[in-house]
Amino acid sequence: MNQAEAILMGLRIWGSIGAVVAAIFLTIGMDRIDEDAREAYIFRPLLIPGVLVIWPLVLWRWYLYEGGRDQWARRYDPPRRAHFAVGWLLPIGICLIILAGLSQRQTWPADLAPVQLSAPAEVSQ
């Protein structure tokens, strides 16, 4: 088994486990953790690709919800705390990237002569 086959086998295993988790979570688990999702089956197929990819996170969150250990009041604290810093870092970073790009001097090889391209020859049929 070469490296490509091993990667492909790993992706197949990951997707298979994700498919099983998606089937179980979207049929049984969704109703248990979200009251608003009860009897709402139309949107669930839209969640299948996401659950296939992040099934370990889905299982972990499902485990926390079922056990009652989810701290919903603190769920959004880390992103809110980071908004101020990110709000300043992103524009400053963009300006630095633009300045670095403009300050780089681009030189071409001196012995490279330009070549004029011509249209392709017509082929008679």
Rank of each mutant, 00 (worst) to 15 (best):
M1C: 01
M1I: 01
M1H: 03
M1W: 01
Q3E: 04
Q3G: 02
Q3T: 02
A4I: 00
A4C: 03
E5Y: 01
A6V: 00
A6T: 00
M9W: 12
M9F: 08
G10Q: 08
R12H: 11
I13A: 12
I13N: 10
W14R: 07
W14E: 00
G15L: 15
G15T: 14
S16C: 05
I17N: 02
A19V: 07
A22D: 07
I24M: 08
I24Y: 13
I24A: 10
F25I: 03
L26Y: 06
T27D: 12
T27Q: 12
T27C: 14
T27W: 14
M30W: 08
M30V: 11
R32L: 15
R32T: 04
I33E: 14
I33K: 15
E35D: 04
E35S: 03
D36R: 11
A37I: 02
A37C: 04
R38Y: 02
R38M: 01
E39Q: 08
E39T: 00
E39H: 05
Y41T: 04
Y41H: 09
I42G: 14
F43I: 08
F43H: 11
R44Y: 05
R44N: 07
P45K: 12
P45E: 10
P45Y: 05
L46E: 08
L47W: 11
L47G: 12
L47K: 14
I48T: 15
L52V: 07
V53Q: 14
V53F: 13
I54E: 13
W55K: 08
P56K: 15
L57M: 15
V58I: 10
V58W: 03
V58F: 02
W60H: 12
R61G: 05
R61K: 14
R61V: 05
Y63Q: 07
E66I: 03
G67W: 08
D70V: 00
D70L: 15
D70G: 00
A73D: 15
R74W: 09
R74V: 04
R75E: 12
R75G: 08
P78Q: 03
P78R: 03
P79I: 00
P79H: 03
R80A: 03
R80K: 06
R80S: 00
R81T: 12
A82Y: 01
A82S: 04
A82M: 02
H83W: 05
H83T: 00
F84V: 00
A85D: 01
A85E: 03
G87I: 02
G87M: 02
G87F: 00
L89H: 03
L89S: 05
L89P: 01
L90M: 02
P91F: 01
I92H: 01
I94A: 07
I94M: 04
I94D: 02
I94S: 02
I94V: 08
L96Y: 10
L96W: 08
L96M: 11
L96E: 12
I97F: 12
I97V: 11
I98Q: 05
I98E: 06
L99D: 09
L99W: 07
L99Q: 09
L99N: 12
A100C: 13
A100F: 11
G101T: 10
Q104C: 05
Q104R: 13
Q106D: 05
Q106N: 11
W108L: 09
W108H: 13
W108A: 10
P109L: 14
A110C: 06
A110R: 06
L112S: 11
A113H: 06
L117V: 00
L117K: 13
L117Y: 12
A119H: 13
A119P: 12
P120H: 13
P120T: 12
A121N: 09
E122I: 14
E122R: 15
Q125H: 06
Q125G: 14
